[in-house]
């Protein structure tokens, strides 16, 4: 097949998958969140259960005027949402939905993931600075500090996985979780990493991921009761939609990363090799939705921390713990 055609096809499929996933996540957040708050949430849009609410919201945002503050740094202001969106979409390029269902088979998949996901910090900082708004500025700076601080425990948590799997390829990591650990009564048992020594790094990864996503309890960059909307304060219309979609795409993205690294990705116990490409996406989807639900659940239960508490948590707790975790796992890896 023509390489360009293949590329275009992959892009279109990926875009559709990612945007659908984000819209579904938005819908679940609207609906599940409402029920957690003793409301019913969207109800009339789309005829039943308000399923079309995210689409209706999107259509509304598209109609809005694309405003920029008079003193904004226009080119940067306009570019920022694209940077965030690109970072969000980039995550999905390397996440394997099945042994062959992957946008780009990279040997350094983990490396690419960490690089592309931290790219969004740049977009956020651009948005905060270029808006010419003091709230945006504070929000952008908070975001920058937060994203950089939580990049480190995130990477350290992933390093532990890489050490255990012995590869940086995401497919390799999934395969490592499929490998037979021991035989119990004639049945070959394979366990995901979360059950074989990666529990601590899984929690560190999730905490750091929520902080990277800047969602409650770590949503200080947008903290609507302090900074109105943080770096998003001045954005409207299509550009706000891009930030918004980007946020939810990243929620799905990070959940997919966590599912791949710790929960066995597209693999499941007793799944025959031949079925992996067919059932793989569904299995991954199941794991991702469980993680996404937990993230939404947390958002509707907890308040937010303070910026300095967040920093001290990263530097004083998460980083030392994950360093110790790496050491322990390395020792086990060498010993066994």
């Amino acid at each position: 097949m023509n390489i360009w055609l293949e590329l275009a096809l992959t892009l279109v499929v990926m875009l559709v998958v990612v945007l659908t996933a984000s819209l579904v996540t938005i819908y679940v957040e609207l609906k599940a969140g409402s029920h957690m708050q003793a409301r019913i949430g969207p109800y009339y849009a789309g005829g039943r259960w308000g399923w079309a609410q995210p689409l209706a919201d999107g259509a509304k945002f598209l109609q809005k005027e694309d405003l920029a503050p008079a003193k904004a740094d226009r080119p940067v202001y306009r570019l920022a949402p694209f940077v965030v969106m690109m970072s969000a979409l980039g995550i999905f390029a390397v996440i394997p939905l099945g042994p062959d269902l992957v946008g780009a088979k990279l040997d350094l998949g983990v490396y690419f993931l960490l690089a592309i996901s931290s790219f969004s910090a740049l977009g956020v900082l651009m948005a905060g600075w270029s808006s010419a708004n003091k709230y945006s500025l504070i929000g952008g700076l908070r975001a920058a500090a937060q994203l950089i601080a939580y990049e480190i425990p995130l990477i350290l948590a992933v390093v532990a996985v890489v050490i255990q799997a012995g590869t940086m390829s995401l497919i390799g990591i999934v395969d490592a979780q499929q490998a037979t650990l021991f035989t119990l009564g004639g049945i070959e048992v394979a366990l995901p990493f979360i059950l074989t020594g990666q529990l601590v790094s899984f929690f560190i990864f999730m905490i750091a991921a929520v902080a990277e996503l800047s969602r409650i309890p770590f949503d200080m960059p947008i903290a609507e009761s302090e900074l109105t909307m943080g770096y998003l304060t001045e954005y409207t219309g299509i550009r706000f939609t891009m930030f918004f979609l980007g946020e939810y795409a990243t929620v799905v993205g990070f959940s997919a990363i966590a599912a791949t690294l710790y929960l066995g990705g597209y693999g499941a116990p007793f799944l025959p090799e031949s079925m992996a490409n067919v059932a793989g996406p569904a299995i991954l989807l199941l794991k991702v939705s469980a993680l996404v639900f937990v993230i939404i659940w947390i958002r509707f239960t907890w308040p937010r921390l303070r910026e300095d508490q967040l920093q001290s948590m990263a530097w004083r707790w998460l980083i030392p713990i994950s360093l110790i975790n790496i050491a322990v796992i390395a020792v086990f890896k060498v010993a066994f």
Binding site: A32, H35, M36, Q37, A38, I298, T301
Partner: peptide, 16 residues
């Protein structure tokens, strides 16, 4: 405990 409460609220019928 807070998360348990919100989950309980979610599965109950909303008083609307």
């Amino acid at each position: 405990k807070g998360m348990a409460l919100t989950f309980k609220t979610m599965v109950k019928k909303a008083p609307v």
